[in-house]
Nucleic acid binder design. Sequence first.
DNA 1: AGGTGAGCTGTGCACGATCACAGAAAATCA
DNA 2: TGATTTTCTGTGATCGTGCACAGCTCACCT
Lengths: 342, 342
Amino acid sequence: MTTSANGRRKPPTIHDVAREAGVSRGTVSRFLNGGHYVSPAARRAVEAAVRKTGYVVNRHARSLSTGRSDSVAFLLTEPQEKFFEDPNFNVLLRGCTERLAQHDIPLLLMLAESDDDRRRLTRYITSGHVDGVLLLSNHSGDPVAAELHDAGIPLVVCGKPIGRGTKVSYVAAADREGAQDMVRHLLAGGRRRVGMVTGPLDMPGGPDRLAGYRDMLAEAGLPYDPALVVEGDFRRSGGERAARRLLAQAPDLDAVFVASDLMALGVVGVLQQAGRSVPDDIAVGGFDDSPAATAIAPALTTMRQPFDRISAEMVRMLLAQIAGEDTAGVILPTELVVRDSA
Amino acid sequence: MTTSANGRRKPPTIHDVAREAGVSRGTVSRFLNGGHYVSPAARRAVEAAVRKTGYVVNRHARSLSTGRSDSVAFLLTEPQEKFFEDPNFNVLLRGCTERLAQHDIPLLLMLAESDDDRRRLTRYITSGHVDGVLLLSNHSGDPVAAELHDAGIPLVVCGKPIGRGTKVSYVAAADREGAQDMVRHLLAGGRRRVGMVTGPLDMPGGPDRLAGYRDMLAEAGLPYDPALVVEGDFRRSGGERAARRLLAQAPDLDAVFVASDLMALGVVGVLQQAGRSVPDDIAVGGFDDSPAATAIAPALTTMRQPFDRISAEMVRMLLAQIAGEDTAGVILPTELVVRDSA
DNA sequence: AGGTGAGCTGTGCACGATCACAGAAAATCA
DNA sequence: TGATTTTCTGTGATCGTGCACAGCTCACCT
């Protein structure tokens, strides 16, 4: 362990360990990677030498040699707050972290808000610093997914991509069917003026949940009334805005299907402030079954997205791609969770 | 651009570019790193060759050669939600990202919740994958800071470390003086039963803000009443809990100094629910001047932490350390922002 | 005894870049 | 003009690993 001019230590190499242990580089390398074909005596000597020298592997050298980096990126291409305020995001992130941890792979969170960030991180990723990318919230116009895919970087996006552009792998919930189930539930409760707050229509989950809503109206023989539908942004504040518009445009509505729980919180709040009782006057159905759903009164009736399975599937597919296999899209079923709001 | 057996492209190297451009590797390398000592003709040829081959630098190889990785970690060693719900965190993170962007350095967010994560990421970092670490929220018992420091990794922590352990660089606000200013303001408003909700006493900002509070009580000749002081956790829910305890222990209190805005939101909410008017019955002073401070009624009187300067200073110090310089601790002044709550 | 295979070990090369160095060409100066 | 500097270029050597290969020892089997 030597000291360089500027006072920063120069870390020991595998060579130093080998010399210290009285064995060759190859033996040390074998010890570090699984430990097969290493005699007990050599093993003990190397263990001691590693401890004594304070050796840690140089990942640049290892990666250069193996072509792998043993790390994965979790890429966000929208303003931080949008994710951070969303309990679903936390669940998803934690799920992916834990699954990857089982393979001893660290997850690096990367935030790309500006175009400048986007370029910098794309370059960073394509230059090999991660083995693959988990991508959240790609707008239909977002070029990042296509760029990474074209660069040959293993990639799994969360949510079914909108534009039928490049053929990227994705994991999504059954948005259309889930929306159908929820609206069916609202109608079964006797509601007839059922409004909807959609997600952004250029984002995963936007159009499909709207389509499910229209499916059920048609099946029930109810007309589609544009005044009953408002586009939101998956944020709480967007839900509040949407609820105010709905009350103005269609004061007689008796139910609302809201395309995310976070927006639903905002909707319920505004409805209550306006003197409407939930669910007596207006039933509210959410989507996600996020932790926030039970944090308000009345507890939110919602469609559960299987976030555990989604994150597990995302990681599984990404690792498969990294291993050289091809993967396609996966759609997982949702489940109606009936609570008090509908 | 060849295709390997499993269908994954094998990326072009600097050698391919050199051959394509009809120059040597050295010339290509010089072109990539600043472009000095490259003739106009060679420059054009290399530019064209890079475009044609789709070359991107292999950062593992570069890092192995240079010893630098040109990336920095932002390390969080507490549960995600704790940061994500805090608007201050967003400001700080964005500030650091932007400052680093000016040097074209990507910021990698790393979350270490479990001990297992902590070990994995420490290993990842010490094995050279980042040039330095910005660390948030280190408890006094948290060994991460010491480990990284001992491993010789450039490191700057946010907030003044509690335990006088290792000598790590830090950037902090003037917690004690800021607390003094706020309590002085409350006393100047005629309040005499001034309570306090502290931060965790084993975290930066915890003990010092409490000390400032006691300073001012002493200066005003008021006794220190333990019933007026409750320890919080810097979270909104913790503020709510603390407020309920304060009301129970000291129903006659007429002011509260809360050690963070987020907790103050919770405190104000509980006080109002209990029928106390803010600021008429009870004045509330916060700390941070987070974006949340103006999101409630009454708008929060608070101590502004100069987050812009804090993030700028953290990045400056980290880059200085990476360049081989030594850095110490920096304390930046706070500023009283008088609004409606006190 | 001789052949076979498994366990273990060391050596050389490759990974893809940077960098120091030496030498050639062009520009400047006396 | 020749001497000197400046610009430009190509060639090893190097960074610290992993991996293929060859060789060596030892146990086991026929």
